[in-house]
């Protein structure tokens, strides 16, 4: 603020002619996501978490409200939602024995419903003090308990499994821990969020905090919330993991993104998830 005022003085008369720059605009309507005629109802906004200190105003919004009617409708019908076919494949893999130990996920965890609540608190600090995303936990089970091969971060089998597990938490509010052992990871993630990357020198905040609700070319900018992930993207006709989305957003600033699954992206995942604390997990969502 002080910086802006100082520069106003320096600019003197020329700035007096400037139009006020547009800023973020809150959506005018925030209907619920009503799935299968009301079998599941998901609110699309929540009170902004206190740690944001008003950076997003007093409300946070699902990316769903920034999408067009057609895209929205696909998520309101589990039969039309293309994610669900991948969820089914994930559930099948859950129940399928793989690896040298002759075990499936179900051998240890029983029904996939036992994963209810997991997605809402990911990523989180594990017993060894590392920040792990759901993908890390999945690969830990595969390699150390099943004797199976690790899946690549954004491979189809991995996305099928994270989709199937996420769906079990559908409707539960995102509630990632940001204090205690999570604090240093959260701080690092926050720093990344506000860093202006690439030759276009744009940070996450430049688009998703300062300008949500605005149009950047044909794209209606959302708050870049993560509660819908993994998503099915109509444009790419496929499922997209969160780190794939981060990577795309950073690449589009003419920058070199971090590796998917890297420490940096897990820190960023925690920080961005915490900006959505209170929004319901949408599990298998649809975006354009």
């Amino acid at each position: 603020m002080t910086k802006a005022i100082r520069s106003l003085g320096a600019l003197g008369i020329s700035l007096a002619l400037t139009l006020p720059a547009l800023a973020e605009t809150a959506p005018t309507e925030t209907p619920d996501i009503v799935i299968d005629g009301g079998a599941v109802t998901l609110p699309t906004f929540a009170d902004a978490p206190a740690h944001l200190e008003g950076a997003l105003g007093d409300k946070i919004y699902s990316g769903w409200v920034f999408r067009d009617a057609e895209t929205r409708a696909m998520q309101e019908d589990d039969f039309a939602n293309p994610s669900m076919a991948f969820v089914d494949q994930g559930i099948e893999a859950w129940n399928t024995v793989d690896g040298t130990e002759g075990k499936s996920c179900a051998s240890c965890h029983n029904e996939i419903e036992s994963m209810k609540g997991v997605r809402a608190v990911m990523p989180k600090v594990n017993a060894a003090g590392e920040l792990w995303s759901m993908e890390n936990y999945i690969n830990d089970c595969r390699t150390n308990r099943m004797g199976a091969e690790a899946w690549k971060w954004s491979s189809q089998p991995m996305e099928n499994m994270t989709l199937a597990i996420s769906l079990q938490s559908r409707g539960m509010p995102v509630d990632v821990a940001i204090d205690g052992p999570a604090k240093p990871f959260w701080e690092k993630g926050k720093e990344i969020y506000y860093t202006r990357y690439g030759q276009l020198e744009l940070s996450c905040a430049n688009c998703h905090q300062q300008n949500y609700g605005q149009m950047i070319r044909a794209d209606h900018l959302s708050q870049g919330q993560t509660n819908g992930f993994p998503v099915f993207r109509i444009n790419g006709a496929g499922t997209v993991s969160l780190h794939e989305r981060f990577s795309g957003c950073i690449r589009d600033t003419r920058a070199e993104p971090f590796e998917q699954g890297s420490q940096e992206f897990r820190d960023l995942e925690l920080y961005v998830a915490s900006r959505g604390n209170g929004l319901p997990v949408e599990g298998a969502s649809v975006r354009h």
């Binding site: 202006r196 990357y197 030759q199 276009l200 020198e201 744009l202 300062q210 600033t253 920058a255 070199e256």
Partner: peptide, 18 residues
């Protein structure tokens, strides 16, 4: 200062340029 508008005639000083 702090504009989101890119600098079109500039060649260095970037973070992780691609």
């Amino acid at each position: 200062p702090d504009s989101v508008m890119p600098s079109f005639y500039k060649t260095s000083g970037y973070v992780r340029p691609g």
